[in-house]
Structure formats: structure tokens, C-alpha cells
Simulated assay, not measured.
Amino acid sequence: MTPRKIELFVPAITPFAADLSVDTGRFVAHSKGLLASGAHGLAPFGTTSEANSLTVAERMSALEALVEAGIPAEQLIPGTGCCAAADSIALSAHATKLGCRGVLMLPPFFYKGVSDTGVFDAYAQVIEAVGPGLRVYLYHIPQMSGVPITLPLIERLIAAYPGVIAGLKDSSGSWENTASVIAAFPQIDTYSASETMIPENVAAGGAGCISASSNVNPAGIRALIDGLNGPDHGALHEQVSAVRRLFEGVPLIPGIKAAVAAQKNDPEFARVRPPFVATGSEHAADIADAVRIAGAQDRE
């Protein structure tokens, strides 16, 4: 069996202009910089990207801007999961037509307590509507969505749509859950949402990580991936863990954006859309420490 490639995909932040429109120029520049810093690819329009504060048209336009700027579509796994099936279908078909590696798809997330059968039907509706070429990465983030992606559901989707279910991002924070997915479904790529879990993920047969804090520390996380079996493994793991711990103590998305703004010396990157608010002075020290530990990034 060919060894699985271990990868870092970054859920790139979405910069906003003063009128809160998407700042496409900064979005493209940041995305290119992440790849130049060692990220294998991007997973825009997930939680960290404030995707659920973006319209379908905004997501499509921003994705097109990345491809038009020369970022290979095969390095992109955009988020496409919405509450309305027609929106998920439109976004997924658009990404597939552009040639994206796949789509990262939340289940419909407003109604809680729904059955696995209902969630299966929701995914099936999108898969069958989009048709050939679609590759789906399931997005398990039950603490936000309220709709878990269970092992029986994954099994049923893989059986019904072989070759379409390409992977899963586990943002539950539970290593036990991630490990159970990897063990049960070695044929798909399973990503952890924290870089601190990369050693365990890789040892178990996983595919790497899709991490919010990789917006700030892509070079450090890439160094950890490349050095997993090397003599500096311990120090590399401590570096990424130290950055991650600091972000766990601040409002995550505003904190990530504030850190990127500090790294780039460009306060425009710190702007968020409501209901988020920018970080205040009480979090300044932690954000400054995260930027210091992450160090200089080889940004384009």
C-alpha cells in the first residue's frame, strides 16, 4: 500500500474591508502566503473563515479569485455545507467545476436531534445533484453544529457513494473519536483540527490536520510534519503546542485575525463580521506571545 501523504490544510481567514465586504486582495495575498510558508493546501470557508457569515455569492467569488490568482484548484478544499440543500448544491457544484480537490461539507446544522437517516438523506441529496467529480470531506464539529457525524453514518455514506467520500475533518476535540474514525475507515483521509494531535494522527494512519492556528504558524506546523521521525520532533511539537495553547485562551477567530494582523503589521486583517467583535487589550499579551513563538513566516 502506498504510504498516506501527511498534509496541512489551512482554513484561511476571510479579511474584510471597512464596509465589511470581503477584501479579496488581502484574502488572496494571505492565502498565497500560507502556501509559500509550507501549507500543502487551503480549506477556506470553514469555521475559521467565518463562512456562515458569508453569502453563497461571496464564497463563490472569493474561491474564483484564488484560482484566478494562480492557486491550483487541486490545493483547495472549500467549505460548502449550508442549512439549505440548494445552497450546498450550488457551492459544491461550483467548486467541483473549478477542479477543487474536494469540498468540506457540514451537515445541515440548524435543526438538532435529527436522525442519522435524515443527515444521510441531506448528504445524498447534494451528492446526487452535483454528480460526477464531487469529492466530499465530511465536517464533524458537533459542539458548533449540534449534528454529529457518527460512525454508522460514515459507513452508510461510503457504502452508498464509493469514491465520493474522500475524508473527514474531526473538530470535536476528542482524540478517541478521531482514532475510531481512522481505525474504522482507513480508506479515507482523516484530519485532526489541532496540530498538537499530529503525531497521534499520523501514527494511527490519519492524514494530518486542518487547523485554525495554522493561519499564524504554518511554517512551524509544516516543520513538525516533516520532522516527525527526526531528532527535533520534541522541540517542534512543543513549538506548535505552545502557539495553540495561547489561542485556546482567547476568542479564537478574532484572536487568529488579530495575530495575522500583527504578523503582517496590517490592522485591516483584524476586522471581523458580527456577531464577532475584535479582541481587546485583555488578550493582547497572549496574542503577542503567539506571534513571537510562531516567529517569522516565509510569506509571499
Rank of each mutant, 00 (worst) to 15 (best):
M144D: 14
A203N: 14
A43M: 14
S241L: 01
V114E: 10
F9H: 11
P186H: 11
A259F: 05
S241T: 14
D19E: 11
E58F: 10
A193E: 07
Q187Y: 12
A223V: 10
D170L: 10
R245P: 05
L42H: 00
A69W: 13
A93Y: 01
A122F: 13
K32V: 06
A69V: 14
H233S: 09
V243Q: 01
I158H: 09
M60K: 15
E64Q: 14
A122S: 14
Q143I: 15
S115R: 11
T55W: 06
V260A: 09
I89M: 07
H40E: 13
S53I: 01
I127Q: 03
P3K: 10
T178M: 00
I6Y: 08
E195K: 08
G46L: 10
A193S: 15
E58Q: 14
M1K: 12
V56S: 05
I13R: 06
N265A: 15
G113S: 13
Y137H: 14
H237R: 15
P275C: 04
P78D: 01
G208F: 11
I13N: 00
A193Q: 12
A129V: 00
V114I: 14
N229W: 07
A160D: 13
R4F: 10
T279S: 12
K112H: 13
I165W: 06
I127T: 01
W175V: 12
D189Q: 13
L236F: 08
P44K: 02
P274Q: 08
S92V: 01
G131M: 12
R222N: 13
V243Y: 08
I141V: 15
P72D: 15
P152Y: 10
D289F: 07
L8H: 02
D226V: 03
P148W: 03
P107Q: 00
T55N: 08
V114S: 03
F16D: 07
A278W: 08
P199L: 06
F9T: 06
I221C: 09
